[in-house]
Design a protein around this nucleic acid. Structure first.
Lengths: 199, 199
DNA sequence: ATATTTCTGTTCCAATCGGTGCAGAAAGCG
DNA sequence: CGCTTTCTGCACCGATTGGAACAGAAATAT
């Protein structure tokens, strides 16, 4: 660690450049942004981008990782809440906040980054779909644990509850992309959880 | 009516061509489909497309109109149900069915047609957002009527209820685009309405 | 039959797409 | 110092983008 690599050091901050790329993908989607847009916002030439990140697909993949550990980190944190209701509440509140964060694009990169695509964006679209599935699986496992612990009634269906929460979060992302405000969406989240679990 | 226009008659069925275009926009989104893809599927040359529909943006607009009167006609029908609960139930059930219709693309054209876009697709994206807003306004008006009629409690918030239903429908569309099945999504809709209204 | 109108297929357009080749610049290593 | 390694900027690639020009074909109107 702390190794100084041989060769000319890169003249830009890769983390910062990736952040700019993430914001652009977030705002316009994978197919809505060109390499010229990206490298221009990242402040580097195309060659430097290819050397540092591979290609457009891999750049998006890395931007998604950064998104997951940054704006979408609420998802992992929510899973650590003590009860299923608190997990669901924190997950939806985090979804609302991430989708309506001032200074960031409205909506969720995991949804609008590539919900559908032409031939060129198929890989990215599938990667995003898999990412959402993964998040839903984590919710399902967490709710299953809640059933095992007696926190949720024995008859509760963890898979259904996970899909219910994920459906709401996805809808919140679409609403936010369409301009819905934070308070309005938080009210929706509150209303959705006023009866929990939806037996 | 029944007027025979002067000039050479067009050699293709404009309705059928528009249907093909709608399906392509639905499956791949506005930016995910090229004029070549479109005209090839429509079975016509680009010149004929321009003569009949204007340009790509207008073709999409007309495809959206066709979508509203076809696969998305459930929305208008749901508003005519006698009670608010029946409206909400029919709206969500219609959303599930339209988003998981065999032989049609998964999801909703009104969402994935253009949730975000680059510069070229901005107009289309805004048109789609306005279309969703319009649908939500209709729901809100219908729920307001339900409050006025005493069908919903006086304290109910029609705007919130409309956004709640629309958020669920949007989430259902995203889930369907990601491969969720009809039965699973109908269960989500059932769960969401098991307590209604979500006071 | 001729004129007019409209549609069709082919050809072509400038611009942009994602991606590369290449020469030089900037670092560590001997 | 030269040598190697890596990064940078520039020019450039073939392919594709949405769109338009144009001549001919097919219909009605006179």
């Amino acid at each position: 660690m702390g190794r100084v690599p041989v060769g000319r050091p890169r003249g830009f901050d890769a983390d910062e450049a990736l952040e700019r790329a993430m914001l652009l993908f977030w705002e316009h989607g994978y197919e809505g942004v060109s390499l010229t847009d990206l490298t221009s916002a990242m402040g580097i030439a195309k060659t430097s981008m290819y050397a540092a990140f591979g290609n457009k697909e891999e750049l998006f993949r890395k931007a998604l990782e950064r998104y997951a550990e940054g704006p979408a980190a609420y998802a992992a944190r929510a899973l650590e809440e003590p009860t299923a209701l608190e997990v669901a509440t924190a997950f939806l509140a985090g979804s609302v906040r991430a989708s309506t964060r001032p200074g960031c694009p409205a909506g969720c990169l995991g949804v609008q980054g590539s919900l559908v695509a032409g031939d060129a964006g198929r890989t990215t679209r599938d990667a995003l779909s898999a990412w959402r599935d993964e998040g839903r699986a984590h919710l399902r496992d967490r709710f299953q644990r809640a059933v095992d612990e007696g926190d949720l009634p024995a008859g509760a269906d963890p898979a259904l509850l996970a899909r219910y929460i994920m459906t709401l979060a996805n809808g919140i992302a679409v609403q936010a992309a369409g301009g819905a405000g934070r308070d309005e969406l938080q009210q929706v989240a509150d209303a959705a959880l006023r009866s929990w679990p939806p037996t």
